[in-house]
Design a binder for these strands. Structure first.
Lengths: 351, 351
DNA sequence: TGTATTTTTGTGTACGTGCACAAAACTATA
DNA sequence: TATAGTTTTGTGCACGTACACAAAAATACA
């Protein structure tokens, strides 16, 4: 167990005082080239890893961080992301963070524009963005670029933007995964039902496109004979869904498997249960409270988790460590995909 | 964001000095009943959570912790447990821990006895036990009980012992999970091959018994018509396995699915691949390096992980927090079960 | 060369906790 | 009441880091 290297050690090795090392580490300037080079050389050699918890202890600065996501209710997907973020603040409890939440209606583009407008003018050190509306996000980000405010994406990234980092599932791979699983648990060449949101304000479209591409690519690569049947579904008029579903199943008698690529799976599974169609296999996304219940009861067979708590946690953690400790950042961060069954759901841990 | 309560605050509230609060918190004695009660009362009221990283900073004591597991090679299951343990020491880098590893040959009971004998007399503050031989473990634990040295199990627990805690998969549920998955991905009523270790010194027998019970319970509860066919397999004579396998498949032509309840899955998957039997579905345990490779190549369909790094990490973390901060301990800790496919294996994170 | 100004460097303190040691308050005994 | 011994209490330092401020060195300018 080799001894831990401290600032004082670096100072001694470089023949300067601890204050100078500190100035180099935080590039506060007012250091002669000679001293700076000497210190940098030593830092290269030894692997100095600052004790972050002690740092934060003596940190005076306050940080102001904004977070914007769609509105969320209890037990929903976006809530988990917020929980993850709060968990970071909990861990670094002595860092003084002002944490501002901006939510908008993800089915109302005007609400999004209004909120993003507000954020554009908001005074802050950094921003975490839960992406949904694509064009609006691009606009917001270019504003942030202009103002030199770093931002991190959660849930999904937007190619046109230059975030400090993003934390999201590899949505294309999610699609492939779902295809693999549904073809594995249904007889060869089965019809597969796919829940398809009827476009409203058309929000998280890009994510869904990627997933669907993964899904169909997998099927065609495997030369599967499965037919994919779209089940229409409305977020804005939930009262219509019962009708959509019964209409679908009236026209399609032989559908042994259904996949839902958004978090609304429990709506379908509830329908199946209420209509004694337990033999239909279901794969859904996200561990929302209703989905978890459906898995426990066996109405959903497989649930795919994309670690929203993890995403929020690491987004905030990365941000703080970047702001405070200048820690280098990995831009692309694909999170783990969790496959949950009735047997494993009780042991699932978000952190 | 309500202000953090410090020792100094408690002292002020209780009308004593910080030193007295410290003595109460660590029950170091030499405190009058009056003062003790006053302090305890305040501690009840406010929820004081010590800043552990600062504590460890000013901690003078050294701790001596022993770990015993079977011998392990690179990329193997037990190595991951050790990695998890090391990760804790990494996180609490300023706690002075002497960390002693005792490994034995898990297929040689005499080796185990010899090592446990040594541990029985070893001077230490706590012990982490990776359980395999049952009777030997019970004996070792009773010795530890006598010496009042706390111990924590990883991988699996032993009912007869009184550990401070254990971190393990719910092995019965692992069995049920595997049964669910294999019956889901094979046609109804298929024959299922089950790799069966021919008894050597008979080591991790109990774990396997639990898993098998879960497996068969599930099948009978589901009134499945699947026949379970045992495939013999030898750990001590690996050169025999090729023969075992070809013998098995000569006698059983129709086996669309095989499950392996230990970490040796890649042995079977390699055989299947080499003999052009790719259509046989495989479910195996543990993310060992060869198993991961087999999943990536598609030779293993589903891999079940029991978070060995997590087990090791939390075992050590729990121990340190118990020893140093008297943190209350949850005895029973069942870890998350991870289901890994070709699509998710690259995104799997141990921590 | 001397003084003012700027740049560079070093020192000291705070943060929250553990622990050693000194100080104070009791208790026992003559 | 005085003295010695014991228990209880308070104080101060260390840990590693950030940051303010003082000190020193370098530079500019008369």
């Amino acid at each position: 167990m080799d001894k831990k290297i401290r600032i004082k050690d670096i100072a001694r090795m470089a023949g300067v005082s601890a204050g100078t090392v500190d100035r180099v580490l935080h590039n506060r300037g007012n250091v002669s080239d000679d001293a700076r080079i000497a210190v940098e050389k030593i830092i290269e050699q030894v692997d100095y890893r600052p004790n972050m918890h002690v740092s934060s202890l003596s940190l005076k600065r306050r940080y102001k961080i904004a977070v914007t996501t769609p509105q969320y209710s209890s037990g929903a997907y976006w809530e988990s992301i917020h929980n993850g973020i709060k968990h970071t603040l909990d861990e670094y409890e002595n860092i003084k963070v002002e944490y501002h939440v901006f939510t908008y209606n993800q089915y109302d583009i005007y609400s999004c524009r209004e909120v993003f407008e507000k954020i554009s003018r908001f005074e802050m050190d950094a921003l975490i963005i839960g992406t949904t509306f694509r064009e609006e996000t691009i606009k917001l980000c270019s504003k942030m670029d202009e103002r030199q405010i770093p931002y991190i994406f959660v849930d999904s990234s937007v190619d046109e933007c230059k975030p400090l980092a993003f934390f999201s599932a590899d949505h294309y791979m999610v699609g492939r995964l779902i295809a693999n699983l549904i073809t594995s648990i249904t007889p060869k060449g089965s019809n597969i039902g796919l829940l398809q949101a009827v476009r409203t304000g058309d929000s998280s479209a890009y994510t869904t496109i990627l997933r669907k591409k993964g899904f169909t690519d997998y099927l065609s690569e495997m030369k599967s004979m499965n037919q994919v049947l779209k089940i229409p579904f409305s977020v804005s008029q939930p009262e219509d869904n019962e009708r959509h579903l019964s209409h679908f199943f009236k026209n399609h008698k032989n559908v042994p498997g259904i996949v839902v690529m958004n978090s609304r799976g429990s709506i379908v599974s509830d329908y199946l249960y209420n209509n004694n169609m337990d033999n239909v296999k279901m794969i859904c996304m996200d561990l929302t409270t209703p989905n978890i219940e459906a898995v426990k009861k066996g109405h959903i067979d497989l649930l795919i988790g994309q670690g929203p708590e993890y995403q929020g946690f690491y987004a905030m953690k990365t941000l703080l460590e970047y702001l405070i400790f200048k820690k280098p950042v990995t831009i692309q961060n694909f999170v783990q995909l969790d496959i949950i069954t009735k047997e494993t759901v009780d042991y699932y841990k978000s952190f």
